[in-house]
Design a protein around this nucleic acid. Structure first.
Lengths: 247, 247
DNA sequence: TGCCTTTGTGTCAAAAGTACACTTTGCGAA
DNA sequence: TTCGCAAAGTGTACTTTTGACACAAAGGCA
């Protein structure tokens, strides 16, 4: 590592979280409204914060997540570092920064994370930014403040890749779920249709979901069996050198 | 984004590069020796530097790469952000920092990149850190300074994943190459053997390598046909929805 | 009782994967 | 000149996986 004093420029580092949820039908992301500022159109943004002095990156992202959703110790993975949101080509972002910040020209690098939450466990917190949070359909997200749209797209791509590598989708579901819910979940994430029978065959052959002795009740159609994720069997799969679901 | 002044802590941001090369037999990484410091054992490290004021992250990584290898405009992808190398549990790193830096306690975040170079194109540069650079076999890398070993492992994993998704391996080879070279390359990256005939069949079916009218010369065995990567055909593949090589 | 909605199931053909061994080519040494 | 060596190049038989596709079963409700 090369150290030259002239390069020792200070930055502020923030973390932003792409929080995915699934409402049994569609994939959503938890976004917040920015503080309203005169003359700047409202725009949604990813929740985030600057990093505390005593924190490392993962801790900061975990803190933002907890302050917003009440959740901790859940799946949380880094998307990457994104440079210079201040220079992003959105004049209104600059205006907004001037209004709410002391030094709008300070350089900020953000380290983005994504996480998968079971929406039923979500409990809106009384923290300042949480009041304006809402679950937005992934398909409806077309623009965000700063470079947050780019971050969101990277996170979604990462999720798509990862779903084929690790059984992380179960984080978006409650402990027991139906096969249709699981099926819909994979379709939502991958963005295309999957044949019902082929999906079921493939998933069952992997042996990582286990049927429970319990059925749906009160539904006006044939009730579905409930299933749960079987972690031990997944670990056995891993030992056999498994590395791709192939969806 | 939540702004509170008390969080506006300054950091230094550096970039480190995992530069992969392939010597027709094994995968290597370009590492540098740290400046010798009395009482600190020599340890190798990833090349890197602090970020210049007017640079964004990608530019800084590109600059480090160019200063070291003379190469520019080649495959370069972010691995991620790594926090707090200063706190890493290696007392000797701390001693080294005290010796070479003014403020060894300043907090540093590094954004790591990885790149794939054709070793024939590598031209050692007269920059200060380049003098001590050498190509180390991936299998021989067991420890590095700071958190560089962790970064190296992440980069290698990323490379393994990516090789199944995009034909990036060709960046490690010269324009014309033999099938055995390509075969060995895939084996080196993936870390396991691949059946020669099956590998060839699969690769040829994808139609992204094209046989040239040229053979090896002067080799004491049957000469190999030369091949080259065919980008147009790869783009056609992509249009058909291709997304996994399945190696 | 009939209707609506969603669950749950099997087969067949095509494609892909896996395991495996011998001939060819060219150089160099005897 | 011939023999040996080393790597290139090639095909087949079998198994497994994929992909396309349609209808009966269950339960609530009107």
């Amino acid at each position: 590592m090369q150290i030259k004093n002239k390069h020792q420029i200070n930055h502020r580092i923030s973390t932003d979280c792409v929080i995915f949820g699934f409402d049994f039908n569609q994939l959503r992301v938890l976004l917040i409204e920015r503080q309203p500022v005169e003359g700047v159109p409202q725009m949604m943004a990813l929740p985030g914060d600057l990093i505390f002095e005593e924190e490392n990156l993962d801790m900061a992202a975990g803190r933002v997540l907890k302050e917003l959703t009440g959740l901790e110790d859940i799946f949380l993975e880094q998307v990457g570092a994104f440079g210079d949101p201040n220079r992003v080509n959105k004049p209104n972002d600059k205006k907004w920064l001037q209004a709410v910040r002391q030094d709008p020209d300070a350089r900020v690098i953000t380290v983005a994370y994504y996480t998968l939450v079971n929406m039923n466990d979500y409990e809106p917190q009384p923290s300042s930014f949480a009041k304006s949070a809402s679950w937005i359909l992934v398909d409806d997200i077309t623009e965000l403040a700063f470079d947050h749209f780019e971050i969101f797209q990277s996170a979604l791509k990462k999720l798509k890749d990862k779903i084929n590598t690790q059984p992380i989708g179960f984080n978006l579901l409650p402990e027991k779920f139906t096969f249709s819910q699981l099926h819909k979940l994979y379709e939502s994430i991958l963005g295309n249709e999957l044949d019902k029978r082929n999906f079921r065959r493939k998933m069952l052959k992997l042996n990582i979901v286990e049927s429970l002795d319990e059925k749906q009740e009160g539904v006006p159609h044939k009730p579905s069996q409930y299933f749960k994720f079987n972690e031990e069997n997944y670990l056995k799969l891993l030992e056999k050198g498994f590395n791709n679901f192939g969806f």
